[in-house]
């Protein structure tokens, strides 16, 4: 039984069907990448899972029970944590303060020692390299900020972690760092849903690739045995698409 099981999820905004009967399943210790073109429904699906939108139809199964996710707090209680693309960190606060924002220990007398210890535990779980947790987040690089955001999502010990474009704004080394973090999440038994545009990243880290096209499932692929071309074909819906045409043209020019 999968940890998270979506079946027949539909969501419309007025006349526009953003999602039509989408299925998705994620196991513990599995990284599922959701790929698709702009407007394919990736973000809508994430928002359904994180409780921002209620689906019009379909069922969500979580650890074998059928559940509803009426709001972000409900998603959090279930054990679904989402790291949004803009990370939502406070630059003027340090790493500890950001990790525990809104969930501080000891409301009337903050237990900063316990929070610092727990912060190091979380960061060590991710084998993250932060020199100190007492620097304001403004002083951190993009990859380190992503680390902090992911570490924060681990605080409630979630079963499923959703990462929205975790590598979009990062350089080569920082991207590799974040991909290492995702490997670590899998090793620790979390189910990971990763939204990405980047084929190389997806193939580097995902176990399974779910392709969305125009709000519908357009194939589920095993990331190891499928070529980038096949996935791109599923994303665009054509064997002969603009990406493959360009590839062929460049190849032809090389010869």
């Amino acid at each position: 039984m999968a940890t998270l099981q979506l079946s027949g999820i539909s969501k419309s905004f007025g006349a526009v069907a953003a999602l039509t009967e989408v299925d998705l399943s994620v196991d513990a210790g599995q990284v599922v990448a959701i790929v698709g073109d702009n407007g394919a429904g990736k973000s809508t699906l994430v928002k359904v899972l994180s409780g921002v939108y209620a689906p019009d139809a379909g069922t969500i199964g979580f650890e074998g029970r059928e559940v509803t996710i009426p709001g972000p707090a409900a998603a959090h209680r279930l054990g679904i944590a989402t790291v949004f693309q803009d990370l939502a960190l406070c630059e003027n606060l340090n790493v500890i303060e950001n990790l525990f924002l809104g969930q501080e220990l000891g409301p009337f007398r903050l237990d900063d020692v316990a929070m610092e210890v727990r912060s190091w535990e979380l960061l060590r779980q991710l084998s993250a390299k932060l020199p100190t947790v007492r620097l304001p987040v403004a002083a951190l690089s993009g990859g380190q900020r992503q680390t902090v955001a992911i570490a924060r999502s681990l605080l409630g010990d979630p079963k499923i972690i959703i990462l929205d474009e975790p590598t979009a704004a990062l350089g080569v080394a920082q991207t590799a760092e974040v991909l290492n973090l995702i490997d670590r999440l899998r090793e620790n038994g979390h189910g990971v849903i990763m939204i990405s545009h980047n084929m190389a990243d997806v193939r580097a880290v995902a176990d399974q690739v779910v392709v969305l096209r125009l709000g519908r499932n357009n194939g589920v692929f095993d990331a190891r045995s499928t070529s980038s071309e096949q996935i791109v074909a599923a994303i665009t819906g054509l064997e002969d698409n603009v990406v493959s045409q360009r590839a062929a043209r460049v190849e032809g020019a090389d010869q």
Binding site: F84, L89, C90, N92, F100, L101, G102, P107, F108, R109
Partner: peptide, 24 residues
């Protein structure tokens, strides 16, 4: 400096949206 309320004040001043999403 030492209460949850104080951290919320600094968080709202630093990034309102982040504070809201953190459940403040």
């Amino acid at each position: 400096t030492s209460t949850k309320w104080g951290k919320a004040v600094y968080a709202v001043g630093g990034n309102v949206e982040a504070a809201r999403r953190a459940g403040i």
